[in-house]
Simulated scan of single mutants.
Amino acid sequence: MSYRTQVITVFGGSGFIGRHLIRRLAKSGAVVRIATRNPTKAGFLKTAGAVGQIVPFATDVTKDESVARALQGADIAINLIGVLYEQGRQSFQGAHVESAARIARIASLNGVTRLVHVSALGADASSPASYARSKAAGEQAVLDAFPQATILRPSIVFGPEDQFFNKFAAMAQIAPALPLIGGGKTRFQPVYVGDLADAIVASLDLDSAKGRTFELGGPRVYSFKELLQLTLKTVQRKRYLLPVPWGAAETLGGVLEKVPVLAPALTRDQVELLKRDNVVSPGAAGFKELGIDTLASCEVIVPTYLARFIVGGRNPTVPGNAH
């Protein structure tokens, strides 16, 4: 990949996925604009490229004129904007549908040649979960405005700043048990953030990726219980895995989502999401069709960043266990 004369605008580029993607895009030689609400927080990414190559760009995705400025002169646009829960003025409709539609519409008007929209595995207009319905609506809005857009649907994404393994590892430090919501049978296909970033970059080089949707899952399918067991083994903690029936989980989510904290531990909508497996559909285009054959596994990557949760540092003589 070499885009030395081009400009790439990445919406939401200062987040978890963005910081890994920006480093890869910088290697292409392109000028990379990080369109974000708070450009100061994206300043650390400037060192990923040459002087002046990585440009944090103050952008309000709720306003046409702000999005237009971020896309002025851009050749490629990548949308990473997404939220895991609704809180205050942060809504699924605003983040996943309205902002996505605005970016796609203005990208088309401004002559952007490629648009990559990162959605989520499980996006479904008929889902009982608002999150999944909004992701599906966002995809449709993007394709309506920019038919040649590439849609990427990753399963849960793991890596150093993830909100899955880190959350449960932190919970294991203080809680005597971890919740097995719905019995822990829901299946996931976690994808490493670095592999997702590689997929985004690879899609830019393939004409065959235009107008297509790719489902991205890692090399192995796990049950929710297996993921919690892996977490406990990694942080060397013995914690009981407590089965929580769906009804009790919905009640708990209803309580926790109202607690005035930065990120709720659980919401009712997340409980609805957990009722469906989050794995790649049979026959769906995925990493292979993007030219990526080797994928990182949880067993290899997760220990590299959860070690900080181990009391006294790494100690291979003290095994973790889950019941």
Results as ranks from 00 to 15, higher is better:
297 S>K: 08
11 F>N: 02
193 V>G: 04
91 S>L: 10
203 S>G: 06
289 E>T: 01
55 V>L: 12
99 S>Q: 08
122 G>Y: 05
73 G>D: 10
23 R>Y: 04
284 A>M: 03
117 H>A: 10
97 V>K: 08
275 K>E: 03
3 Y>Q: 08
152 L>P: 03
256 L>F: 14
138 G>C: 12
186 T>F: 12
240 Y>K: 15
28 S>W: 01
230 L>Y: 04
90 Q>T: 14
86 E>F: 01
98 E>V: 09
18 G>D: 03
206 L>C: 14
34 I>P: 00
222 Y>F: 13
271 V>T: 03
145 A>G: 09
159 G>A: 01
101 A>V: 04
207 D>H: 15
207 D>S: 15
164 F>R: 04
75 D>P: 00
134 S>R: 01
175 A>M: 15
180 L>I: 08
302 V>A: 10
141 A>G: 11
99 S>W: 02
57 F>D: 02
26 A>K: 02
265 A>C: 09
244 V>F: 07
115 L>S: 01
27 K>S: 11
182 G>Q: 02
83 V>T: 09
169 A>T: 14
137 A>P: 00
71 L>M: 14
201 V>T: 14
218 G>I: 12
139 E>D: 13
34 I>K: 05
314 R>V: 14
223 S>E: 01
209 A>P: 07
162 D>I: 09
42 A>Q: 04
165 F>T: 04
138 G>M: 12
294 T>I: 06
295 L>T: 07
273 L>T: 05
190 P>H: 13
258 K>Q: 08
240 Y>H: 13
61 V>K: 00
238 K>Q: 11
245 P>I: 12
203 S>Y: 06
286 G>H: 02
205 D>I: 00
251 T>G: 07
31 V>C: 09
